[in-house]
Design a protein around this nucleic acid. Sequence first.
DNA 1: TTGACGTATAAGACGTGGCTTATATGGTGG
DNA 2: CCACCATATAAGCCACGTCTTATACGTCAA
Lengths: 109, 109
Amino acid sequence: MDATFRAISDPSRRAILDLLAEGERSVSDLLGFFTFSQPALSQHLKVLRDAGLVLSKPVGRQRQYALNAEGLRSVADWVRAYERFWTEKLDGLGAVLDREAAKEREIKP
Amino acid sequence: MDATFRAISDPSRRAILDLLAEGERSVSDLLGFFTFSQPALSQHLKVLRDAGLVLSKPVGRQRQYALNAEGLRSVADWVRAYERFWTEKLDGLGAVLDREAAKEREIKP
DNA sequence: TTGACGTATAAGACGTGGCTTATATGGTGG
DNA sequence: CCACCATATAAGCCACGTCTTATACGTCAA
């Protein structure tokens, strides 16, 4: 989960995911959308691979990348806990909330 | 939007938001949940303030912090574009997708 | 008024992230 | 076979992020 949030913190990596949401692409294809260098792109792709957000496979001397949207469930699940605030009036800001959102008292990083 | 994604990339900051989702808290109250120093917490809170994810107000010599969940809409909106993949079979990975997700061809970081 | 409290800010240390150029490695086609 | 292509990896640089200790500043209570 941490790896996922870190992966999507970068705007270029979010853009890569957006592109792959339209369909598989090769590295050189993806490179056409950015101005940074090819190795920079490879590094971004590695972060996304390691976070489980993309899948890659060799196709000849190219490499195809595909989105693994399952990896984004943890993000959606986390942010879903905040949706209730958007449907209620914001004067509930100080209100004591549903126990579903209860967390452990001690958070150890 | 970038500031928001960067703010939530850190697990401690996500934990702060989770705590504030239950209700307003003072800085010293929040500090009780973490092992890092008070100035570290102040820095995290500043990141969250600057990203518009929390609101603060002085209450005597204390400072109350409250969640501003509106700031998380951009995250939810972004990840919502990926929900369609979870309801479909993953054999659609290579499929050409809805034009709603279309982006500009050139992405300038 | 003064000392204590609560918290923001300053400054420093150091690890990390994101970029670069260079190079290694595997695949292709003439 | 060899030159070219595509991309991953290596190594370096430097800005930034996150921590720390020290201190400044505003508020409170005796």
